[in-house]
Deep mutational scan, measured.
Amino acid sequence: TEEYTYTDKEKADRAAKEWANRGYTVTVTQDGPTYRVRVG
């Protein structure tokens, strides 16, 4: 499991979509002003 942190919702959504397109399980959680994209 890897985790990426973004401050921009659009970038987080785009990253999540790209990982999902590659067949990974993706979870996006909002943590205050940041968005965490957990992959795998």
Rank of each mutant, 00 (worst) to 15 (best):
E3T: 11
E2G: 12
T29A: 06
T5N: 07
Q30M: 11
E18P: 00
R38K: 11
T5G: 04
G40Y: 14
E2L: 15
G32A: 02
R36M: 08
N21A: 14
R14W: 10
T34F: 15
T34V: 15
R38G: 05
V39G: 01
A12L: 03
Y4F: 13
P33Y: 07
Y24R: 05
G23F: 02
A12V: 03
E18W: 15
R38Y: 09
K9G: 06
V39R: 04
A12K: 01
V37E: 00
A16K: 04
D31F: 08
A16T: 04
A15T: 05
T27S: 10
E18S: 07
Y24F: 13
A20N: 07
G32S: 02
T25S: 10
T1L: 12
D13A: 10
P33E: 12
V28Y: 04
Q30S: 08
T1A: 11
A12Y: 01
D13T: 10
D13S: 08
R22P: 02
G32D: 03
P33R: 05
Y24L: 06
D8V: 06
R14S: 11
T29R: 06
K17V: 09
R38S: 12
E18Y: 15
R22E: 13
R22I: 08
Y24H: 07
A12E: 00
T29I: 14
T5K: 06
V37F: 04
G23R: 02
A20R: 15
A12G: 02
V26M: 01
T1Q: 11
N21V: 09
N21M: 11
E18M: 11
K9E: 05
G23D: 03
T34E: 09
K17S: 10
Y24A: 04
K11N: 10
Y24D: 01
V26C: 05
V39E: 00
V26A: 06
V28L: 07
T1I: 14
P33D: 14
G23A: 02
T7L: 11
E3D: 08
D8S: 13
A16D: 01
Y35P: 00
W19V: 03
Y35N: 01
E10M: 09
E10P: 04
E18A: 08
T5V: 14
E10S: 10
T5C: 14
Y24S: 02
D8I: 06
R36I: 15
A12S: 03
V37G: 00
D13E: 14
T29K: 06
G23L: 02
A12W: 01
A20Q: 14
K17N: 12
D13K: 09
D13Y: 15
A16M: 06
R38E: 07
D31T: 07
T29F: 13
T1E: 12
K11S: 15
R22S: 10
V37T: 01
T7Q: 10
Y24T: 02
Y35C: 01
V39P: 02
W19T: 02
T29N: 06
V39S: 01
K11M: 14
T27D: 06
V26I: 04
D8H: 05
K9I: 06
T27G: 04
E3N: 05
Y24G: 02
Y4H: 05
A20I: 14
K9F: 11
G32I: 01
G40D: 13
D31L: 08
Y4M: 06
A12H: 00
D31M: 08
Y4N: 03
D8W: 03
W19S: 03
G23H: 03
D8F: 03
D13F: 14
P33N: 12
E3K: 04
G23M: 02
A15R: 04
Y6R: 00
K11Q: 14
T29L: 12
K17R: 12
Q30V: 12
K9M: 06
T7H: 11
G40K: 13
Y35R: 01
Y24P: 00
E10V: 10
R22L: 15
N21S: 14
D8K: 05
N21C: 15
D31P: 01
T27N: 07
A16N: 02
K9H: 08
T29V: 13
T7V: 09
V37P: 01
V39L: 06
R38Q: 11
T5Y: 13
V37M: 04
G40N: 13
D13C: 15
T27R: 05
E10Y: 09
A15M: 09
G32W: 03
G23W: 02
R36W: 05
E2Y: 14
D31S: 07
E3A: 05
Y4D: 03
V37H: 00
K17Q: 13
T25A: 10
T29Y: 14
T5H: 10
T25E: 12
W19G: 02
E3R: 04
P33W: 06
Q30T: 08
R22F: 07
V28F: 04
E2N: 14
E18K: 07
A16E: 05
W19C: 12
G23N: 04
D13W: 14
E3P: 04
E10K: 10
V26D: 00
G23E: 02
V26Y: 01
E3S: 07
V37N: 00
E18N: 07
E3H: 06
E10W: 11
E18G: 05
Y4R: 04
D31W: 07
D8L: 05
T34D: 07
A20M: 14
E2Q: 15
W19Y: 07
K17L: 14
T5W: 13
T29G: 04
V39N: 01
T29S: 10
W19K: 03
R14Q: 14
Y24V: 04
Q30A: 09
K17A: 13
T34W: 14
